[in-house]
Design a protein around this nucleic acid. Structure first.
Lengths: 225, 225
DNA sequence: ATGTTTCTTTTCACCGATTGCAATTTCGCA
DNA sequence: TGCGAAATTGCAATCGGTGAAAAGAAACAT
């Protein structure tokens, strides 16, 4: 009864993956709103009804791997060493969330990039992403509180996570709006995290080189397009 | 042509308000999903189609006054005195956003409370609220950058707003989940803002086996400036 | 007051997402 | 091989949302 054994399971996984792939391809090709669920299903040779037995909604097909990323973040918290403080834990959490999976193939990376592009482009998906992010924050805050019970109370833990994620998110968006490339956007997110850690009070420190560029390692993953 | 003069304008406003009121009443009475747009329209004696000429979507009817609150926040930024720094401006921004309108009547307050209750209860509305909040943050960040051009760059401004709003939001949610009352939730939001201002580094203020004692610097910022 | 112009509302016909249900097909396993 | 569980499908129906043309109501000019 190993997972992935039965033909049934394998077939289901294949269908699921095919649906995701077809959906993303069509979304990028003709636009999200312009693509119907029926078309997606048809291009994988399943009925429209079946699509909805795999995904609860049209949006969901874009957020198929959400759980995995959340688990990764929760794992970081779980692995926390007893003497490690919250302050040390948070940056590690940030990195774990920002760095994309390396274990996945070329194809998966391209798919992830496409997904990101879609989320940043389509309002409905943007909204959905924000809701997902919100739930994740609650989950992470709760895990954090459980992990460091004598360091923070629920409200503090939540505030910390909120500040941290909020800063990273808005910084990333600002960078994107400025026309930055994907690696640059990641750098901006890190800068956001740094600002949140340091506190907003430290902001008007216009001292030193104006835009403190965090290393923006160019070309690690091509953005194709 | 004074605004609000014509019969037409007055009638439109009345209908609009009636729709909002009817919608909120029905939503609380039988639930959001269980209430159809047709029912809302019918209870105000207009056609379903007309509903959509007043509101772009069923969700929108709950967020009718969003613009007003945003304008209030932007006004705070606009009123900023030239010597005022970002650090001084942000708390004022927080207060302006948290304190509810006092100029409105009894009825409006009850409506606002109902709206809040709905947003916290109905997933679809929660998602919508998050999206609205997101857009507001972008707008505020942009305004902030324009107001203090030599203090912050776009990414810093965005990060500041994100940290600040994120902390307040998540803190408020945590308080709510804990069962706090409305005033207590507001207090939690202020605490969140304070944490964001001070920086997450200062968090482990509780007793414990900390390896590093962070000097949190000046502590003049308690909860309410 | 009357006809004209302009803005709203209504009617109607659709589209697409989503769901419940019953029929049918496909696997897994004895 | 044959049965029971799981997956797929077809179908009908609901509901949110939209486009377009026709009917109404208010504003405006004469």
């Amino acid at each position: 009864m190993a997972p992935g054994t039965g033909l049934r399971e394998r077939k289901k996984l294949r269908t699921r993956h095919a649906l995701v792939e077809a959906a993303v391809r069509l979304f990028e090709l003709k636009g999200y709103e312009e693509t119907t669920v029926a078309e997606i299903a048809a291009s994988v040779d399943v009925s429209t009804r079946t699509f909805f037995s795999y995904f609860a909604s049209k949006e969901d097909v874009v957020f198929h791997d959400t759980r995995a990323r959340v688990e990764r973040a929760l794992a970081v918290i779980a692995e926390r060493r007893p003497e490690e403080t919250l302050v040390e834990l948070l940056p590690r959490l940030a990195e774990a969330t920002l760095v994309p999976e390396e274990t996945t193939g070329e194809r998966a990376l391209e798919l992830a990039a496409a997904r990101t592009r879609l989320i940043m482009t389509v309002p409905a998906l943007e909204a959905r992403a924000l809701h997902v992010l919100f739930d994740v924050q609650r989950e992470v805050a709760e895990a954090l509180r459980r992990a460091c019970p004598d360091e923070v109370d629920p409200v503090e833990a939540a505030a910390a996570v909120g500040a941290f994620v909020g800063a990273a998110t808005m910084a990333a968006v600002a960078a994107r709006d400025r026309g930055d490339s994907l690696p640059e956007i990641a750098a901006a997110a890190r800068q956001g995290v740094a600002i949140a850690m340091r506190g907003l009070r430290s902001l008007p420190s216009r001292s030193g080189p104006q835009t403190e560029r965090v290393h923006s390692g160019r070309e690690k993953f091509a953005t194709k397009g």
